[in-house]
Each structure stands twice: as structure tokens, then as C-alpha cells.
Amino acid sequence: MIDVQHLTKNYAGGIPAVQDVSFSVAPGEIVGFLGPNGAGKSTTMRILAGYLSPSGGQVMVNGLDVTRKNIEVRQSLGYLPETCPLYTEMRVREYLNYRADLKGLSRRHRSAGVERAMEQCGLLDVQKRLISQLSKGFRQRVGIADALVHNPPLLILDEPTIGLDPNQIMQVRKLISELSSSHTLLISSHILSEIEATCSRVIVMGKGKILESATLAELGERWSAGVEIYIEVKAALADVERVFREFPEVKSLDLQQTEAWTCGSLLFHSGEHREQVFECVRKEEWPLRELHAKRQSLEDTFIKLTTGEGKA
């Protein structure tokens, strides 16, 4: 569906924005595009959407070369830019009709397409309202409905939840997960929990290059610092430290005393150790309040990748 080979993009004055980037997205995949500001995500997405031309490399979208078949590529995808710009003086239905006309839909298909997009995005109740009177969340939905109106197989959404409040984020996330069943999606976001919740694979960019491209599970394995077990036991800090330091495979301890309780994490090199830890606690006859394994979050991986910390 998307095939990018050795993509480079230099801005005026030769400033490199994207350097030798290669990746692909298969039909039906939901791919998250991650990276700090200035990593080149939006530039790459704008090239995919046909707004910018690549300085080098080849970009194929739906089997079409973005440079040679620019108009056809634009016709074959739905794109939501980062700032979700809209003509705020128009009404929701009027705007979507206008966009459907621009995308070449016939009158009959336009009506059906606009109706479907509004229904998918929950806009039917506000279809007659001026866009300027809508909340940011609803405007974002209008932007997504615009991307959907001609029912393209591929959607490229650049920061679809930026600037939204938590409730609006939940609504947009729900919408994206609904869309994921029928569309191929490429989503960039700073909200990593959103990527974790919606994407099957992530591409991490930094300084114009791809730092990592993997499924979430692969990423966790590759960048995990170890296996972390969190405990809370009623015992003296010194006793707990003494016992767990003698434990095989223990890498480090991060424990603290809070009144009569010792709380914190035991970090192991690898493997499953919850049962052993529990057995040890039982043997020492320490009252146990909590014991669970902590999974490394995508956020941790993201920080490691983009700040240049080495692999574990």
C-alpha cells in the first residue's frame, strides 16, 4: 500500500528534513509514526499525501509513484494535516459536500459519501452548524470525515488528537479504532498510549531517519532494560535489600521505606521471577500488600530511542 525507498527531502538552503528513509505499509496494517518534533514525520506524511515532492528516492502509494502520478495518489488516499485547517465560515455538511466535489464524487456518490463520513465521525447532529462554532474535537472529526468522504483505502492522519482534551482524545481514539477495521492507517502522534492502543506496528523517526520499525512486542523485547517486579512488603528496608540482593539474576534494586512498608522494584536481567519472589516473601513471613510485573511502556522505549540511549 505504501512503499518508500531511500526517501530524502531537503528544504531550501539544503537543510535535510528526511534522510534515506525506507519503509513499507501493507494493506490492512495500522502503523504508528513516532518521533520528537522535527523528526521528519510530518514532512514524510506530506510527501506521501502529494503536498511536497521528494528530493530523492521513490515513494509509491497504492502502486502509484507520488512524483509522476501526483493527482491520482491524492485521489487514492485520505489525509488529515497536523493543524486540521478548515474553512470555518462553512457549515459541516456544506464543507464536506465541497470536499467531495473536489475529490470528484458524482452527485449520487457525494450524498452517500458525506452521509457515511458524518455517521462514522458522529457529525450528524452538528451537520448544519458553522465550523467556527464547533469545539476543537468536533473540528478534528470534520477533518477526519473529510479524509474519509471518498472512502479511500488508505488514511494518513497527522497528529489526529493534538490539542484535544482527554474526553475528546478518547472519542477520536475510538473513531480511529473503528476505522482500523476497514482502512489501512498511518498515524503520527505524540500520545504514545494512543499508538499503543491503536497500532499494530510503529515506525520511530529521529533527526530525519528511521530509528526503529517493529511491532510493539518486538520493540519491547529489543529495548527492554530487563524484567521489573514491583513489591510492597511489611519489613525493614535493610532486610528486604539483603534478601533480594542474594537472589539470582537480580540486576538492581530500587526500594524505599514508607513507614512500616518497603516498596519498590526489583530489576532482573530476564525471565519470569514472580513466583520465586512470592516464595521468598512467604518464607520470610513478610506481610505482602502488592506484587506485580511491570511492563516496559512504549514511552520508555520512545525516550530511549530518541535520546540515543543504547540498546539493552
Binding site: R46, A49, G50, Y51, I71, E72, R74, Q75, Y79, P81, T83, P85, L86, Y87, R99, L102, K103, G104, D146
Partner: peptide, 14 residues
């Protein structure tokens, strides 16, 4: 200024 040019020029129009 408003960014709508990007919306306009990512629609299939010359």
C-alpha cells in the same frame, strides 16, 4: 496563513 492551502493542495486538483 490559516493552513487551508495544504488541505486544498492535497485534494486531487491541479
Amino acid at each position: 496563513r490559516s493552513g487551508t492551502l495544504e488541505m486544498l493542495l492535497t485534494a486531487p486538483v491541479k
